[in-house]
Nucleic acid binder design. Structure first.
Lengths: 177, 177
DNA sequence: CAGTATCCTGTCCGATACTG
DNA sequence: CAGTATCGGACAGGATACTG
């Protein structure tokens, strides 16, 4: 899937994936969340080729996921810092780690989320900020917003008909969206 | 990054990315979460080439993310259903959508998470299941677990020294992990 | 409909060498 | 250290045609 195509998509998930739907990017963010900031730290921790890392870091800076900050003038040295934008991805990456521990690891976990105040291992869940309720399928759903395009609306309608049991003719959304 | 390499990695995030660190996979899951189940539904909704979709669906079934269920015998027809494993990714994908709405969309949101009981738009946050506290950086952190390998431990130690101000020699972890 | 089979192209990536 | 430059191979992805 082309990155640029995703970035222009109408669905917010698709657009997000255009920015962070790449394994290297997420691996770099993982390291940044744990405190790494420098080129060779990322390179060795991720075990990524320097040219690839260079390209990725530039893209991420360009997308506002990292900030390139000089911390030494002679010789010139930079570090890559998280931004507010990428900082907000931290819970998502943590959730992915927890999911991986449950489903992709055999035996004991290799990394785990803890409450540093108590040392207790933490189970993270997503909740409605207002009510504190977990985001169950029956109650919480994505629906087309005010700016939704034709494809999004069509899909939502189609699914409602499908759920109602009237499996409709077939899925034939209007042109591009 | 090779998928197989990620799947064998020691870090749970890397392993998760080996399964779902691909844009098409996440796009298909997005559609599955919203209720689509059939080949042509995915194909048209994602606008993905049929051969690619076919490959992806097989991989996902092989990885336990989807289940292929026959719902009609003549002619033979199948649908792809979410599993428990992939169902647990739903909050993560929702969180990604919310992040995308905040940071990757200009103007009004195209899709939004609502409480279907009230119609109110929902802000989703990750919390500690026990305490209900949001996962702030200062209090909640990933640490090496009982089965952590050498690289994971080295990185964690290195970062602690780095945080303590004693920026140590440099990042040179032990060999593979 | 629900896919499979081919072919072709782009590009992502890894390896390596080089530089201020 | 913190990158850049170059090169070749593997593979993902798009288009298209075909089938039960």
């Amino acid at each position: 899937m082309k990155n640029e195509a995703l970035l222009k998509a109408s669905c917010p998930i698709a657009r997000s994936l255009g920015l962070v739907g790449d394994s290297w990017t997420l691996m770099i963010l993982r390291d940044a969340f744990s405190g790494l900031t420098r080129f060779d730290e990322f390179q060795k921790s991720c075990n990524i080729a320097p040219n690839i890392l260079s390209r990725r870091l530039k893209e991420m800076v360009g997308h506002g996921l990292l900030e390139r900050v000089s911390y030494c003038s002679a010789p010139p040295r930079h570090e890559y810092r998280l931004t507010d934008k990428s900082g907000e991805l931290r819970p998502i990456v943590l959730a992915l780690a927890a999911w991986g521990n449950r489903h992709c690891v055999d035996g004991q976990p290799k990394m785990q989320l803890v409450d540093t105040l108590t040392g207790r291992e933490v189970t993270a869940i997503m909740v409605d900020k207002e009510t504190g309720q977990p985001l169950t399928v029956d109650r919480y759903q994505m629906v087309p917003g005010p700016a939704a395009g034709a494809l999004l609306r069509y899909r939502h309608d189609y699914i409602r008909r499908k759920r109602a049991g009237q499996t409709p003719t077939r899925f034939s959304p209007p042109g591009a969206d």
